[in-house]
Design a protein around this nucleic acid. Sequence first.
DNA 1: GTTAACTAAACTGTCGACAATGTAGGCGTG
DNA 2: CACGCCTACATTGTCGACAGTTTAGTTAAC
Lengths: 223, 223
Amino acid sequence: MEIAAESAVTHADKTFFRLRKDIVEGVIEAGSKLSETELSTKYDVSRAVIREAINRLTASHLVERRANVGARVVSLSPQGLVELYQVREALEGMAARLAAQNMNQQEIDDLQGLLNDHFDEVKDGQRYYQEAGDVDFHYRIVLGSKNQHLISVLIDGIYHLVRMYRVQFGMAGPRVTTAFDEHRHIVQAIANRDGELAEMLMRRHILYSKNNIERKLLHTSPH
Amino acid sequence: MEIAAESAVTHADKTFFRLRKDIVEGVIEAGSKLSETELSTKYDVSRAVIREAINRLTASHLVERRANVGARVVSLSPQGLVELYQVREALEGMAARLAAQNMNQQEIDDLQGLLNDHFDEVKDGQRYYQEAGDVDFHYRIVLGSKNQHLISVLIDGIYHLVRMYRVQFGMAGPRVTTAFDEHRHIVQAIANRDGELAEMLMRRHILYSKNNIERKLLHTSPH
DNA sequence: GTTAACTAAACTGTCGACAATGTAGGCGTG
DNA sequence: CACGCCTACATTGTCGACAGTTTAGTTAAC
């Protein structure tokens, strides 16, 4: 699932990844306080390591920190989700535009291949698609932009928050076949080297996805 | 110049701001190594404080770090500048769109007022405009988006890098009156609550600005 | 009973020392 | 002379202890 297996060489790295996982998956509750001493005993490392991990989480917008008070896991809210998707729309739209310029033929072919695999899955009625497949698709386009800023802001930052919303608000649902068609059109535009269209389609795709999630939010109790 | 004077309560805060200033303004050379021990004696704080400051700079993309090796100030390159402006275009375009939705009448009036002040300056032929005025204009629109992610990514991150490029490649130059007209049109679109147009105009504005800077880069030796 | 000042506990911020890792220079070998 | 190994040094990573700040609880005054 991870494109390039993130290699954790230092203790702070490992602790950062563990903490992030626990936060994204809700093992550590959204909005809860992160006590440095408590975590340091729990993960069996010194407070300095915990502090560094927390600082990195703060940079990813998964944690908020106040001087002399402490760090809390961010709280999730419909408002926050909307804002997140607005940023996603802007950045991934640009990523699609740049991908149409900068992906080489091999990468485009691979993307087509990925799509075909998805098609088989959708045909077989597998639910599996949504999570891993969707993530993979978006990753490739972002990486295809070849824009280092775009890549790091999305992959190191925003995507983890998106996944946190998905997991904790329990989105798995449908929109599978619809989303598949949207993906197909985006790849088509990229293959045609039409950046303008690719951006437009990607923005629509994310907008629809947002609306879909929002709709669910109103039907399930946001808790 | 700073919208809200950033209040540094802790030593790490102050050191972070001092370091950031020195990096952006080139006092610490782009691409140079940041030695923890050296900085800790120079700024007269412990290494722990320096480490925290460096970590935050890493989050702002002003510094790059490799485990067990150390941190370096980022290197500036035409390529990097282009990528930066692509991200800016996407994010500030979205900011303008949202500002048209979310700014209240008072904020729009103030923005108009700011523009009038600029007009007087431009009329008097002041060069002053470009730096402070331009920054102020863009800040207000970003803040007007009321989108917390957008605000922090741009203001805490990207803008400092932009300024670093401006300072170190020595951009001061013209484009004053032209840019002024572009600003005027953007405000007009926001006042009309036309988010679509505001986004388009902002994107053009930034694109022109990028082209202008790129043109200069080819004429001055980038060193 | 309510408010305010004080006190103590718990937590974060900072420090100096030690451990682990990377780096450069010298040495020997082919 | 070139290459690789080994040693000594410099730098980053990690730790435990202390200092400073916030917070909650208690007491006293009105």
